[in-house]
Design a binder for these strands. Structure first.
Length: 534
RNA sequence: GCCCUCGUAGCUCAGGGGAUAGAGCAUCGGCCUCCGAAGCCGUGCGCGCAGGUUCGAAUCCUGCCGAGGGCGCCA
């Protein structure tokens, strides 16, 4: 990539100017403003102090040296501001980008190898199987799935899991609530209620275990509504089966052997405070039952059978859980730098200008299903992925619905539809795209064309950052920028019109194809469809 | 009280220690004999407050203020 070539050239120049080692903060980056050139380096600024030189003087020497020993495509160098060295490149560097996009295609363009095939187990959603998944849970579905897609394109081998808490007090309450509703009785204290309980109770046959049936009913609903959001899991793991197969008994033995287990108040405790937790945690209650923690430890060990690195995506309401899991894994000699918990902030739903407080037990749910029915999967998914998971998200259902047609996802999809329409229109007019090898792309010099290529050129950097930060919203932003660049190009640079020069037309046809590739890659990473017409 | 996260434009949000902080929506205006107007172009002094680190801070650190979440032998 051009960026690496420039970086190497800068590092080489520095050493020739007597700067001994490459300074740690040295970067080659895209300036925020176009007038500062195509690329820029802070080399003089980060070197000046250690070298005992004036940054602007050093910058000038750097610019002089690089003017003498000019890297490919570089037309001019300038020193600006406190000592930035700015590169102005010929359009040929962007013509190379076009060739690269077309050569690598939808399958490989922007693909980078960060993971080196590392198997990553990523668990997300894992909502309790005691009712439909609410629209807040959809955020984790869209997020976890897109992180997996991004990591896959960055050389990791992700494995998506949903953990089923099909055991314990909540499931018993859920079953009892179904039974009560079926019999027309009032639900138990702290039980579940709401429309879905009545509906499901009505479906429930007489001769079934209400807990087991209810869990299956709930899981079927979860599977279906997540699939509507284009989220599909590789593995659904059952807590109950973990207990039934004795995995947690085995883990208890290992924990005891680790020397961090003790008995107190009739319960069995893990001294998680040895590993940074603020208090110790109960593994076996005084009534003999396991807490949620114990089978979950067994589950995390089990996950290491399907991955060498574990990611848990958790809502902010579970962040307090992380230290005890880390502690437990460390007590067993696992975890450490192979365990990562991502804490996402919760979703607030607004309807009619008021917050919709969601609770399965109270039964006032806005389900994923409702959201998808109202606005469609693409709008919902893009809305979830438009912002950082670190920020609390407010989804105004009225706004999403009424402004659905102005939703950014349509802006991007419309660009894709225009791409395909150009293909259809070219066929009608008998315009044939020649093989790329026979096409001269040098006529591409319009600012709109160059801007489009600049956006395409950024995919690799965006992908790397989105992957290491586990932040799909950077991909959302990139694909929006790409769509913007395409719409601008489309507006100002006709492709098929009679008055377009034949050579320019061929070059533009290939630029359109490169745009298609970029849009397809971006939308796929977000799990959003790329319709050819709208 | 302690812990985690977040305070950026009227609203919803981007912003990776860099140069004059950006989008969408909303407002007001301009552009279709021309590949789809779901588009393009214009219209905006806003980083909660106070210190600190740095050549340089929306970004890192400390404190304060405000919002959300957590602090169970629930899951």
């Amino acid at each position: 990539m051009i960026k690496d070539q420039l970086f190497d050239a800068v590092a080489d120049a520095l050493s020739n100017l007597g700067v001994d080692s490459v300074p740690s903060g040295l970067v080659v980056e895209r300036p925020a403003r176009r007038e500062h050139g195509d690329w820029s380096t802070n080399a003089a600024l980060v070197s000046a102090k250690a070298a005992g030189r004036n940054p602007r003087e050093l910058g000038q020497q750097l610019a002089d040296y690089l003017t003498e020993n000019r890297p490919a495509h570089v037309e001019a160098l300038e020193i600006a501001g406190p000592g930035f060295v700015n590169f102005r490149l010929a359009a040929t560097w962007l013509h190379d980008v076009l060739a690269e996009v077309l050569a690598e295609g939808e399958a490989d363009y922007g693909r980078i190898n960060l993971g080196d095939g590392l198997k990553v187990n990523i668990e997300f959603v894992s909502a309790n199987p005691t009712g439909p998944i609410h629209a807040g849970g959809g955020r984790w579905g869209a997020y976890g799935d897109s992180v997996a897609r991004i990591m896959a394109r960055c050389g990791y081998a992700p494995h998506k899991e949903f953990y089923i808490n099909d055991r314990g007090r909540q499931t018993q309450l859920f079953g009892a609530s179904l039974t009560a509703a079926k019999n027309g009785e009032s639900v138990p204290e702290d039980g579940y209620q709401g429309a879905y309980i009545d509906e499901w109770a009505a479906e429930m046959p007489d001769d079934v275990d209400p807990v087991a049936w209810g869990i299956e009913r709930s899981l079927a609903d979860a599977r279906e509504s997540l699939e509507q959001l284009n989220v599909v899991f590789d593995t659904w793991s059952s807590e109950k089966s973990m207990v039934d197969t004795g995995a947690e008994a085995a883990v208890m033995d290992r924990l005891r052997a680790s020397g961090h287990v003790y008995e107190a108040d009739g319960a069995t405790w893990l001294r998680t405070s040895d590993f940074g937790d603020d208090q110790d945690r109960v593994l076996i209650k005084s009534n003999g039952d396991y807490t949620y923690l114990t089978p979950d430890i067994a589950y995390h060990l089990d996950k290491y059978n399907r991955g060498d690195y574990i990611i848990d995506v958790l809502g902010a309401d579970h962040h307090g859980y992380v230290p005890r899991m880390k502690a437990a894994l460390e007590a067993l000699g696992s975890g450490g730098d192979t365990y990562e918990a991502i804490i996402g902030q919760n979703v607030k739903l607004m309807r009619g200008g008021e917050e919709v407080k969601m609770s399965k037990r109270a039964g006032n749910l806005v389900e994923i299903r409702d959201l998808v029915d109202e606005v469609g999967a693409d709008v919902a998914r893009f809305a979830y992925l438009l912002q950082s998971v670190d920020s609390p998200q407010t989804l105004d259902l009225d706004l999403l619905k009424t402004e659905a047609s102005e939703n950014p996802v349509f802006y991007v999809q419309y660009a894709n539809a225009r791409v395909h329409n150009i293909g259809i229109e070219a066929d009608k007019r008998g315009i044939v795209r020649k093989p790329f090898a026979d096409v001269d792309v040098s006529p591409l010099s319009h600012e709109r064309e160059l801007e489009l290529l600049r956006q395409l050129s950024a995919l690799g950097e965006v992908l790397e950052f989105a992957c290491t930060e586990r932040a799909p919203h950077h991909v959302s932003n990139w694909v929006r920028e790409l769509a913007r660049a395409f719409h601008g190009f489309y507006h100002d640079c006709p492709v098929l019109r009679d008055d377009v020069d034949a050579d320019l037309q061929q070059a533009r046809l290939w630029l359109v194809e490169a745009s298609r590739i970029g849009l397809a890659i971006g939308l796929d990473l977000l799990g959003v469809s790329a319709p050819e017409s709208m």
